[in-house]
Write a protein that binds this DNA or RNA. Sequence first.
DNA 1: GCGATATCGTTACAGTGGTAAACAGTTTAA
DNA 2: TTAAACTGTTTACCACTGTAACGATATCGC
Lengths: 157, 157
Amino acid sequence: MEKPGHTAAKAADNPSGLESLVGYNLKRAYVVVQEDFRAALGQDGLSARVFSALTLTVENPNITQSALARMLGIERSGLVAIVDELEGYGYLKRQAVPGDRRVQALAPTPQGEAAHARMTARVRAHEDRLFAEMSDKEKQTLLRLLKKIRGVGNDAG
Amino acid sequence: MEKPGHTAAKAADNPSGLESLVGYNLKRAYVVVQEDFRAALGQDGLSARVFSALTLTVENPNITQSALARMLGIERSGLVAIVDELEGYGYLKRQAVPGDRRVQALAPTPQGEAAHARMTARVRAHEDRLFAEMSDKEKQTLLRLLKKIRGVGNDAG
DNA sequence: GCGATATCGTTACAGTGGTAAACAGTTTAA
DNA sequence: TTAAACTGTTTACCACTGTAACGATATCGC
């Protein structure tokens, strides 16, 4: 009758403190999406960060590692392993740049472009399925609010 | 003129691929909030996970570690260090339960309750400031959509 | 030109946050 | 009573990130 923890059944039964915090809900939602992302891409799939790096490389050929790190919001030291992995898959190449011998431009290979297209479709499908209960309008609203938090104003859109 | 990476100026200049993905925006927004949380609580503040554990313990006195881990969505092995930390601060105590010698109920100390109240105020202030540009309605919408992703239906609200 | 300063990619290391497997002690069910 | 399940814990990992340093190179001030 008085077993400890009996009053706490499910996470949703906590309407007071944590559940009203944006940060808490943001983290929990992020974990859900992240797990579904991994499961959807399977064991052959890249992690979200590596997929992001590949995507930005395909969309910005000959981008510098430093510039890519800035776009991803991580340190350039952290990007080295990511680029190593992608280069190991043969998805991109580090190429010397004539004008500046410090930098190495990242160029996607044809296989990298193909893999990117393939995985992008899988990622879109994963999001479509995961957010199936959300209307397009809700999804747009969510994206707008998340960008607002990020400080990415949609003043140009 | 043809410096690599020149085409990629800011993260917001990438309206095509990544920026339209909920997962990507969710992660970036989460990082922003997480960093502000740490900065707002200062060096004496608890991490978000430890704060969450303390909050749930205060709101559910005599909760079991296993039950708390379930509520937090983490493994109970991972909760041990968190409870150790909180017990080290004198914020809660592990207490033996008469009926079941396996479990140890978590009970917040008066200092733990005071610390929780103090830090909750700081966290509320942090969120109020960080989301100042969002209307109350927008915040409510954001919370609702995040809970939807979490699978936490607000059928009771 | 030359020296100071800055940038690039890289390495090594530490810290955080989380999982998985095993374990002894205990309780519950067959 | 034996088998199964649960609790807290330790230990070992793994993914991700930041910091600090480094050599090589570029750039700026003079």
